[in-house]
Amino acid sequence: MSSSSSKRQTLFISTLIISWYSSNIGVLLLNKFLLSHYGFKFPIFLTMCHMSACPIVFLKLVPLQHLKSRSQFLKVATLSIVFCASVVGGNISLRYLPVSFNQAVGGTTPFFAALFAYIMREPGFHWFGFIICIITATAARAFKSVLQGILLSSEGEKLNSMNLMLYMSPIDVVALLPVTLVMEPDVISLTLTLAKQRQYMWILLLVNSVMAYSANLLNFLVTKHTSALTLQVLGNAKGAVAVVISILIFQNPVIVMGIGGYSIIVLGVVAYGETKRRFR
């Protein structure tokens, strides 16, 4: 690869990562605002709104790819359910945890995060929120990253990012609808009531859904052009950025241990990037 091609590739990937960070942190903070400060206490319905935005935004921007085999469909369906569970769990945890602690659990070893949070009386600690966050922040997210990497890169089953989102979205909506009706039965009436009280309710939900779609699409693009491992490393760094921004916006309390932990994460990301560059 020539020097100019390498620079263009680096610029392209850097732009993808910056765009992914911006949309992901934006939707995270808006989710927190809606679920904890705005009175909209329906994380499952909120996730369904996110997934419903995909077919609307898609609008034939790229040619439709057809699924080639039952095996490919099963992988897409599995990714959809795991992805959906991860997002729903993350949104539920945001109702109970500050963004800073939500991201800390996602980027550190859960056992020690729980132990230190309990011992040091982490501000805003909530056991239910923590357990939900732990389930979605470890195995589900790691499995999702690997499986989406296969679907985006393998020769026999390769799908582009927009087509993958297009196939996943209806599966997620179908899976979420009965869960929403059972666990959030009053969502429609209460949302309509809230919309009468809050002038910008529908605008916020629309912006939130479009941002979520953008974040998911960029997540797939970053995976395709880097790797599942790189995505996890970058995700940890993103968590550190989200923590700083959330503290500035929501005034979340923070402890010295938290600052130290995220400093280690940032140093780890820098070391990973330098090691990867040297061994190319």
Rank of each mutant, 00 (worst) to 15 (best):
M1P: 13
M1L: 11
S2W: 08
S3R: 10
S4H: 09
S6D: 11
R8W: 10
Q9I: 08
Q9N: 15
T10C: 12
T10P: 00
S14G: 12
S19P: 03
S19L: 15
S19H: 04
W20F: 14
S23H: 02
L29C: 04
K32N: 02
S36E: 07
Y38D: 02
Y38H: 07
G39I: 11
G39N: 09
F40V: 03
K41E: 13
I44E: 03
F45R: 01
H50Y: 11
H50R: 14
M51F: 15
C54N: 07
P55H: 04
V57P: 06
F58D: 08
K60M: 04
Q65G: 04
Q65N: 08
H66M: 11
K68V: 14
S69H: 14
S71H: 15
S71M: 13
S71G: 12
K75G: 06
S80K: 06
S80N: 05
S80Y: 05
V82D: 00
F83I: 00
F83R: 01
V88R: 05
L94C: 09
L94W: 13
L97E: 10
P98E: 06
V99S: 01
F101D: 04
N102I: 01
P110S: 11
A114P: 00
I119F: 12
I119C: 03
E122Q: 15
E122W: 04
P123D: 05
G124Y: 11
G124T: 07
F125L: 13
W127G: 01
G129E: 04
G129M: 04
I134W: 10
A137E: 01
A142M: 11
K144M: 10
K144R: 13
S145A: 15
G149K: 05
I150Q: 13
L152R: 07
E155S: 15
G156K: 15
E157Q: 14
E157S: 15
E157W: 10
S161T: 10
S161W: 09
L164K: 05
Y167C: 01
Y167V: 02
D172I: 00
V173I: 12
A175E: 00
L177D: 00
V179S: 01
M183F: 12
M183A: 11
E184K: 07
E184H: 06
D186N: 15
D186Y: 09
S189W: 01
S189K: 11
S189R: 10
L190S: 15
T193V: 06
Y200P: 00
I203W: 11
I203L: 14
L204Q: 07
L204D: 06
L205Y: 05
L206I: 14
L206Q: 01
S209H: 03
V210G: 03
V210E: 02
Y213C: 01
Y213T: 02
A215Q: 07
A215I: 05
N216W: 00
F220C: 09
F220E: 01
L221Q: 14
T226P: 15
A228W: 05
V233G: 07
V233L: 05
L234M: 12
G239D: 04
A242F: 09
V243P: 08
V244Q: 08
V244S: 09
S246P: 12
S246E: 09
L248Q: 12
Q251R: 13
N252V: 01
I255D: 02
G260V: 03
Y262H: 14
Y262W: 12
I265M: 07
I265T: 09
G268N: 10
V270E: 03
A271Y: 11
E274F: 13
R277L: 14
F279I: 12
R280N: 09
